[in-house]
Simulated scan of single mutants.
Amino acid sequence: MPDHGVLNDPWTYDVVEARYVAGRRPFGTLDLVLEKDGQRLVLRFTDAHDLAIDPGFPYCYMGLELLDVSSIGWERTRIRVQGSEDAPGIRFWAGDVQRIDG
């Protein structure tokens, strides 16, 4: 699957916070706070589901991947988040993602 275009080189960022909020929809919202060179940004994933977080997460070398899986054709699923390294990480599917700088 191709990389999602919301963030270039996501594996170069550290995950410093993860917040999941259950909503009225079938799935919730997940905010990942990322940091690189002292700058923070938030990736807000809507319709986040099948969330798995390994013991030891966040691990600085987990190699975060954001994949565009829209070609699969699954309803409410267009994004796959996972680690590219064999290290403790986070994995989930989502319907959409929005980048929030600041």
Results as ranks from 00 to 15, higher is better:
Y20H: 08
F57S: 03
V81D: 00
P10D: 00
P55T: 13
G63P: 06
V33H: 12
A87C: 14
D54G: 09
G63A: 14
N8P: 03
L66Y: 08
L34V: 09
W93R: 07
A87Q: 14
V69T: 15
L32N: 13
A52G: 07
Y61Q: 09
R80P: 01
A48G: 12
A52I: 14
T77D: 07
G38Q: 13
D96T: 10
K36Q: 05
S84R: 14
V21Q: 14
Y20F: 14
V42H: 05
G56P: 09
E75S: 09
E75N: 15
A52L: 15
A18C: 04
E35Q: 15
M62P: 00
V33K: 14
Y61I: 00
D68C: 07
E65Q: 11
G28E: 02
D50T: 15
G83L: 04
D9L: 08
L67R: 13
D31E: 07
D86S: 07
D9E: 10
F57I: 01
F45M: 01
T29M: 02
G95P: 04
N8F: 03
S84F: 07
E35A: 08
L51W: 11
R40D: 03
R78I: 03
T12R: 09
D31A: 06
D96P: 02
T46D: 15
D68R: 11
D47E: 14
D68P: 11
W74P: 04
S70W: 07
T29W: 02
D37H: 14
P10Q: 03
I79M: 03
P10M: 02
V81C: 04
R24Q: 15
F45S: 01
R24P: 11
R76V: 09
A94W: 01
R78N: 13
D54R: 03
D31I: 04
G83S: 03
P58I: 00
C60I: 12
A52V: 13
G38L: 10
E35D: 07
S71R: 14
I90Y: 01
P26R: 15
I53A: 12
Y20Q: 08
V42C: 09
R78V: 04
H49W: 09
L67Y: 05
G23S: 15
L34C: 10
E85V: 10
C60K: 09
E65N: 12
P55D: 08
L64E: 06
T46N: 15
D47R: 15
E85S: 14
L51T: 07
T12Q: 13
Q39H: 13
L30M: 07
L64G: 04
L66S: 03
G89W: 00
H49K: 13
D31Q: 06
D31Y: 06
E65V: 03
I53R: 12
T29N: 05
V81K: 02
F92Y: 05
A22P: 11
D54E: 14
C60E: 12
V21T: 15
S70L: 08
A22T: 11
K36D: 00
Q39L: 10
S70Q: 12
S84D: 07
R76Y: 12
F27S: 12
L41Q: 10
Q39S: 12
R40Y: 11
L30G: 02
F92E: 01
